[in-house]
Simulated scan of single mutants.
Amino acid sequence: MRGPLPPGAPAPDQRAVSRRLTAEIWIVLGLSLGKSAVYAVVSLIAKLTAGPPLAEQTTTLNPSQSPRPYLDLTYQLLSIGFALLPVALALYLLSANGRSAVRRIGLDGARPWRDLGIGMGLAAVIGIPGLGLYVAGRALGITVEVQASALNAAWWTIPVLILAALQNALLEEVVAVGYLMERLRDLRWSTPAIIAASALLRGSYHLYQGWGPFFGNVVMGVVFAEYYRRRRRVMPLVVAHTALDVVAFVGYATLPDAWLEALGIM
């Protein structure tokens, strides 16, 4: 985790190292997914106490930020760019000992076709049951209606939605899987506890969508965390997550309303 000590330097106190790593984890999460989890919990409480049942409430992803198209585009690109800063921070911290962080967590392009194939397979395994779980959650009244895109129609709408999907994938898979699991491993957490922490974090920042997406994302988190534990590669997870979000975002923006209603997502 650190480079060699200078001659005669005392060995670092392990408790101090652990405290520093713990503080680092809280800072990284507080700037990224942990902050999202807190807001998601507050949002769920607000929805549960608002009066109408969850099934009659709506949440919107990728909203338009201005009625002026090019100003909206500017805001969208700025939001995507700044949202990736915690990814850069996590990679920077993981490379503190001089080792490449992208190689450490398998975010490199060493096996592009294999990563693509595994990622698309994971997307199918997660995506199809996930849609069914969403529909079931809507029927049971424990999931809000999720509008996956509310961008105004423009030439840049689909490219921006694809970039948003990639941004979500990089942020969640690098921070919630690669970074968090590596750091908890450094802290000598047990394997079940590491997987549970990663999965519960993933579920927690989806709570604003209701209980169904929470449980669905916890299951997804267990699958992704276990894959990472076995293979130590986050790139297939980024591919899978990007594919899932592209289908959700672009599909919602382009499919006819009748199709969306038939799928139970409108």
Rank of each mutant, 00 (worst) to 15 (best):
S18L: 13
G203D: 03
A37R: 02
L91Q: 04
P236Y: 10
L171V: 11
E226T: 13
V234S: 06
G127N: 01
L21N: 07
P6Y: 04
P4E: 04
R138Y: 05
N168P: 07
A148T: 08
I27M: 11
A169E: 04
V238G: 06
A262M: 11
A243P: 01
L77D: 03
P10K: 05
N62V: 07
G30W: 09
N62L: 07
T60H: 11
G51A: 13
A46K: 15
I27T: 10
L133A: 09
G130S: 03
E182H: 02
T242R: 06
G117Q: 14
L93D: 01
R138S: 10
L73S: 03
V177S: 02
G3R: 03
T242W: 03
R19K: 13
A96L: 06
G106Q: 06
N97I: 01
V223N: 02
S100V: 00
L122P: 02
V177T: 08
G119P: 05
F249Q: 04
L61T: 12
L187W: 05
R114Q: 15
I105G: 01
P213C: 11
Q14F: 14
S100R: 01
V218K: 05
A240T: 07
D72E: 02
A258D: 12
P6D: 04
D186A: 09
L260M: 07
Q147G: 12
L31R: 08
L73Q: 00
G137C: 02
N217T: 09
G137W: 00
I105Q: 00
V17T: 11
E182L: 05
K47R: 14
D115T: 10
V223M: 09
D186C: 04
E226Q: 14
L244E: 00
Y70K: 15
T157M: 05
G251T: 07
P86I: 07
F215L: 13
L133F: 08
W155K: 10
W211L: 12
R230D: 10
Q76N: 06
